[in-house]
């Protein structure tokens, strides 16, 4: 089960078929992206935080909270990483504050639903790797 807020975003993307409108929507999300706050991490970021296969040089953190939920943070180091910033912004706004069990439910399939024709050749793999990295961190947090 995907969280309701993420479901809503996917529904919105499903309704917008014009490529230019989809691009505008993605850019809006990219504009809302906030780099990982300094109390979580400061550059240079450790290699083990880096999302493999992502050319936008994305890094990801999952910070467990006292109430059993967790917060997600990303850093995107490539200034041209608009797609990575859009996805990071969607993931952090919809998954932060959920439990690791809930976060782990997110599937890399959402990349296809969100980006569709806006996905360029190399990007799909890197974006799916971002989702996989979130899942892996959530799984690790759950097993801790």
């Amino acid at each position: 089960m995907l969280p309701a807020t993420l479901r809503e975003i996917l529904d919105t993307f499903a309704l917008v078929s014009d490529p230019a409108d989809r691009a505008a929507l993605l850019i809006d999300f990219a504009d809302q992206f906030r780099q990982v706050p300094p109390h979580v991490a400061v550059p240079p970021f450790p290699k083990q935080r880096r999302v493999p296969a992502c050319e936008s040089e994305a890094y990801v953190w999952l910070v467990p909270q006292a109430d059993g939920t967790a917060n997600l943070h990303f850093a995107v180091e490539n200034p041209s990483g608009v797609s990575a910033k859009a996805l990071a912004s969607i993931l952090t706004s919809t998954l932060s504050g959920l439990t690791p069990e809930e976060i782990e439910q997110v599937s890399p399939d959402i990349v296809e639903q969100i980006f569709r024709q806006n996905i360029s050749m190399g990007k799909g793999m890197g974006l799916m790797a971002m989702v996989q990295a979130v899942r892996a961190l959530a799984r690790a947090a759950r097993q801790r």
Binding site: P19, A20, A24, I27, A30, V82, A86, N118, S120
Partner: peptide, 10 residues
């Protein structure tokens, strides 16, 4: 002319 279609509009 880009590979990434999001760059020009951004």
């Amino acid at each position: 002319s880009n590979e990434d279609l999001l760059l020009y509009p951004s």
